[in-house]
Amino acid sequence: VLSTASHAGTAAHQAIAQHMLESFDHVEADLGCPPDLPFDRATARTADGPRRLAMNCSGKHAAMLAACRVNGWDERSYLDVDHPLQQRVRTTVEEYTAETVDLVGTDGCGAPVFPLTLTGLARGIAGVVARADADSAALTDAVLAHPWALDGVGRANTVTIEQLGVFAKLGAEGVMVMGLPGGAAVAVKTLDGAQRAGTLAALTLLQRNGLVTAEGVAGVMAATGEQVLGGGVPVGAVRAGAGLR
């Protein structure tokens, strides 16, 4: 699961990432992601400082290093856009999204990132959760079986998966994708880059298309929705506006 996670950096997440590294004779210093503090506030308060294992993409980087070891590719340059690993990633993205990648950026974790349309992104996620091949089926099943590993206990993606059985994954700058295994998927980009509207927006779109219930959406939002406080007490709420379509 950590190979696709933006995890909270708890001790449990870091332990799994460490195990992934050790399984292929790698060490934390081999990770190409930058040192960071955990997303999880409690863990961050007790941390001695930023470290690569705590970075939310450490599992993905550990998996990329493992892929290099298995395939005999150079491990020091695994983040180069022309590296065989990144070329394989690019080909896979193009296959699932049915879009041609013309530009390449750099993600916050240091890995190459490929600009896509929201339609292409939704198409790609729908392809993954369709479970049409052994790899996508194994990934989808693992996320549904261990939702805490994808995000973190009590966090929005994890609660969405636990309560609704919906594959949910946040991305940087206000991106959110959700998909029903064997069914449809949605992709959302919040224009201001914030995360607080992503879960509500994606779930609302699924609800409007009859894929989840209003009660289910309300339950997830009650457990995870960001409060609007004034003087320490709730004075408002985040709601879906007319512009969401």
Results as ranks from 00 to 15, higher is better:
158 T>E: 15
11 A>E: 10
153 V>M: 02
245 R>S: 12
245 R>C: 04
173 E>F: 05
73 W>M: 03
35 P>E: 03
30 D>S: 02
13 H>A: 12
237 A>Y: 12
208 R>H: 05
33 C>P: 03
109 C>Q: 02
204 T>I: 11
101 V>A: 08
167 F>L: 07
55 M>D: 04
176 M>A: 06
234 P>T: 13
150 L>Q: 01
73 W>K: 01
79 L>Q: 05
67 A>E: 02
1 V>H: 03
245 R>F: 14
152 G>S: 13
220 V>E: 01
29 A>M: 13
196 R>V: 09
70 V>E: 12
106 T>V: 14
76 R>Y: 08
81 V>Y: 06
32 G>A: 06
115 P>F: 04
233 V>R: 14
225 G>V: 08
46 T>E: 15
147 P>V: 04
226 E>G: 09
191 L>N: 09
105 G>S: 14
136 S>M: 03
31 L>P: 04
100 T>V: 12
4 T>N: 04
237 A>D: 15
245 R>W: 14
32 G>R: 00
235 V>S: 05
80 D>L: 14
14 Q>H: 12
44 A>D: 13
132 A>M: 06
206 L>M: 15
219 G>L: 06
40 D>M: 08
165 G>H: 05
14 Q>V: 12
210 G>R: 05
241 G>K: 14
63 A>Q: 11
94 E>N: 11
123 R>P: 05
172 A>C: 15
138 A>D: 09
217 V>G: 04
18 Q>A: 15
163 Q>E: 08
24 F>N: 02
51 R>K: 13
241 G>W: 13
72 G>H: 02
134 A>Q: 10
98 A>D: 07
115 P>Q: 11
53 L>N: 01
189 K>Q: 05
106 T>E: 09
179 G>I: 08
92 T>G: 11
70 V>K: 00
52 R>P: 06
5 A>Y: 00
3 S>Q: 06
10 T>G: 00
112 P>Y: 03
53 L>P: 03
180 L>F: 12
191 L>A: 14
30 D>H: 01
143 V>Y: 01
99 E>G: 00
46 T>I: 15
157 N>Y: 08
59 G>A: 06
83 H>C: 13
53 L>R: 06
223 A>G: 08
199 T>I: 02
82 D>T: 09
56 N>E: 04
194 A>W: 10
144 L>M: 12
44 A>E: 04
211 L>N: 00
88 R>N: 14
75 E>A: 07
136 S>A: 05
15 A>K: 10
147 P>R: 11
51 R>S: 14
186 V>P: 05
37 L>P: 00
1 V>R: 00
160 T>P: 04
173 E>W: 10
115 P>M: 06
233 V>P: 01
12 A>Y: 07
102 D>R: 14
190 T>Q: 03
111 A>E: 02
240 A>R: 15
232 G>I: 14
231 G>T: 09
230 G>I: 09
144 L>I: 07
54 A>G: 13
38 P>R: 01
87 Q>T: 10
117 T>K: 12
61 H>P: 13
29 A>L: 10
